[in-house]
Design a protein around this nucleic acid. Structure first.
Lengths: 167, 167
DNA sequence: ACCCTGACTTAGTGTTGTCGAAGCCAGGTA
DNA sequence: TACCTGGCTTCGACAACACTAAGTCAGGGT
C-alpha cells in the first residue's frame, strides 16, 4: 500500500470540486463515457483486444461470454469507433475477419490500467503486472498536472469550469 | 490531443501482452474490479462522492438515479469498503448520516480521472476540467514506469508474470 | 460434390437492474 | 402532541442483459 493512498483516509475531495450544480448528467463526461462502455461485457471485450485477441472465437473463449453477447459488443464497439474490422488471411486459409483497436480504443488503456492497478492494490495481486517494454520496470498510473507536479491522491484537486474553447 | 495518442493508430498492444492463457477470469484483476464496481450506477454514486455528496438526497438528486437504487449501491459500497457511514450534526438539526469515501474508495480517483480524460478527448469537451489545487494547472493521467519514463500509449507495454510475493 | 470450420444470427428463457409510487420511522420544531 | 423532514424500505412492473441451443452461410480442402 505505502505512501500513495491510505495516508489520507476519509478524503472526499477537499475543496469538494465545488461548482457542482448547473452541469448535470447530459454534460458529465463520466456518464457519457460509461454510455459508450455500456456494460461490463464491453469492458471485457476491450480488455481482450488489448491482450491481443483478434478473432471472434478468441473473444468468446477469453472473455467467457456467450457468442451472441460478444457479437453484439463487437458490433457496437465498431459502430462507436473503438474497434475496427480487419481482414487477414493465414496461409492456406480463406480470408477471415478480425478486430483491432482504433486509436480511440487504444487510448482507453490508461483507464484500464488504472482499474487494474486499483484491483491489484485493494483486491489482492493477480500474478501478472504491466511493465515498460525495453526497460522492464513496472508501470503505474499517475496523476500529474501540467506544471509537472505529481498529485498524491484526490486531496488537492479542484474542479474548474474549463476556459471556453480550451481542449 | 497532441502527441499522446493518435500518433499510433491501430495498435493493439504490440508484443501483444503475450502470456495470455493460463490465467483466466478468476485471476483477472479487471474482471474482479468490475465485480466491485458492479454497475454503471455504482460508478455514478462514486463520482458524486468525489464531487462532495454526503447525504442520501444529494446522491439521489445528483446521480439522477431512483432512491431504491441509490440505497442499494450505498449499502453495497459500504459493505465493500469503498464508502463509510459518517454522522454529523448541523446546528439545530438532529444527527444525520452521511457517506464518505474511504482510502480504498478515494484511490479509485485515477481511474475515474482516466475515464474522464478519455471522454473529454473523444466525446468532446464538457466544460469542466480537473486541476491541481494551488498551482491551478490542468491534470492529466499518465502511465509511467518506475524507471521514470512516461509511456506514450499502449505501444511499448508488456504483460509479465509478477515475481511471486511482489506487491 | 461433400464436409468442415470460422463467424455469426435467431429463438426462447432466466436474471439483474431500474423505475415510480407509497409507506415507515426517528428526531426536531411549533 | 401534532406535524414536518430526511433517510430509507417495500411493492409491482418493466426493460436491459445474459445464457443455451440450434441454425445459417461462405469459402476451402479432399
Amino acid at each position: 500500500m505505502s505512501d500513495t493512498a491510505a495516508s489520507d483516509a476519509k478524503i472526499h475531495l477537499e475543496g469538494r470540486l465545488e461548482p457542482r450544480d448547473g452541469w448535470r448528467a447530459e454534460t458529465c463526461t463520466i456518464a457519457r463515457t460509461l454510455d459508450v462502455l455500456r456494460t461490463k461485457s464491453a469492458m471485457l471485450v476491450i480488455r481482450e483486444a488489448f491482450y491481443g485477441a483478434e478473432r471472434f472465437d478468441e473473444f468468446v473463449a477469453r472473455t467467457e461470454l456467450s457468442e451472441p453477447v460478444v457479437a453484439a459488443r463487437l458490433r457496437e464497439l465498431v459502430a462507436d469507433g473503438l474497434l475496427e474490422r480487419t481482414s487477414y488471411r493465414e496461409p492456406g486459409q480463406r480470408a477471415r475477419q478480425g478486430y483491432a483497436l482504433t486509436a480511440m480504443g487504444a487510448d482507453l488503456f490508461p483507464a484500464l490500467a488504472a482499474l487494474m492497478q486499483w484491483g491489484e492494490r485493494w483486491l489482492g495481486p493477480s500474478g501478472v503486472r504491466l511493465e515498460h517494454h525495453g526497460c522492464g520496470a513496472p508501470l503505474t498510473v499517475e496523476l500529474r498536472c501540467e506544471a509537472g507536479h505529481t498529485v498524491a491522491s484526490s486531496g488537492d484537486i479542484g474542479l474548474a469550469r474549463a476556459p471556453r474553447g480550451s481542449r
